[in-house]
């Protein structure tokens, strides 16, 4: 048992997304964009240029009519812990100017827009396409600028942005907790996507805190992570009872069976996770 006082114990914020509940309604994408002042463009239909910090993919089982099935796959930033969970996530380790870092006290991968100089190496490093580049100056038409939230700094052109697990919400929750001289409660810090999700597919919390819902959920039989075998060590877990969905979470040689749970692909010679 951890006997340290709670506030000094490192947290590991993470997310569990139940793919069997997700209806692909897109609420999370809009809530996220609105919460985080994500820039808009006149044509958002080219997905290679359209920024959505959380993107909901639609995948199918590839079977013919009428045996086809679909599943929606929301993909925020995975906030990878990197090999052995040492904080060397694919993007953090490559950023030449330390514009993105791994916060060992929260497990969140930051992105500091004013530090980033736009080399895009992190985007090349991220296998999830979770990072977006500001190819254009952000322009909000008419008075839409009025709807920008001061909690999240708008990005200038030429820098990379990505999901922050709505870190500013944690900052605000902590402020309130300071005033009331207590700790931040589980429900006080929830991401915008979690809050908006109508089907309740997204759960957010401290993965290391047994009192938090995610702690139990990540141990579910149905749990898996995206591209587990690359050892990126994501903090986003997915749940699905459908074997083809689980299989879609990673690459498998045809003879392999994706029966292993999160953390199954251990690094040789290391403690692994």
């Amino acid at each position: 048992m951890n006997t340290e006082p709670k506030e000094t114990r490192a947290k590991k914020f993470g997310m569990v997304i139940d793919l069997d509940k997700c209806t692909g309604c897109g609420s999370c994408m809009v809530a996220c964009s609105s919460e985080n002042n994500v820039p808009v463009r006149k044509d958002e239909s080219d997905k290679l240029l359209s920024a959505t910090w959380i993107r909901v993919y639609r995948i199918t089982n590839g079977k013919e009519f009428p045996d086809t099935e679909i599943c929606y796959f929301p993909r925020p930033c995975m906030h990878c812990g990197g090999k052995n969970d040492d904080g060397h996530s694919p993007c953090v380790s490559v950023c030449p100017a330390t514009a993105t870092d791994y916060d060992h006290s929260t497990g969140i991968v930051s992105q500091i827009y004013t530090r980033c100089f736009g080399c895009r190496y992190c985007m090349a490093a991220c296998p999830y396409h979770a990072r977006y580049f500001n190819w254009w100056d952000p322009i909000w038409p008419a008075k839409i600028e009025e709807s920008l939230s001061p909690d999240v700094s708008p990005r200038m052109r030429g820098v990379v942005e990505k999901c922050s697990f709505c870190f500013h919400r944690y900052q605000k929750a902590k402020d309130k907790a300071y005033i009331e001289e207590r700790d931040v409660e589980e429900m006080e810090y929830q991401t915008a996507c979690t809050q908006a999700c109508p089907s309740g597919a997204i759960t957010f919390g401290d993965l290391d805190n047994p009192d938090h819902a995610v702690y139990t959920l990540k141990q579910d039989k149905r749990a898996f992570r995206l591209l587990e075998r690359l050892h990126t060590n994501p903090k986003v877990y997915y749940l699905s009872a459908r074997s083809w969905v689980k299989r879609a979470g990673d690459n498998y040689v045809s003879s392999e069976e994706p029966t292993k749970g999160p953390g199954a692909y251990k690094l040789e010679g290391h403690g692994g996770h």
Partner: peptide, 22 residues
């Protein structure tokens, strides 16, 4: 009805409110 949740169209109304089609 919606117990704290909302669909994307509802959330995006800030942009209708301040948007260029007003």
């Amino acid at each position: 009805i919606n117990t704290g949740d909302l669909c994307g169209v509802g959330i995006s109304a800030t942009q209708l409110l301040y948007g260029p089609s007003r």
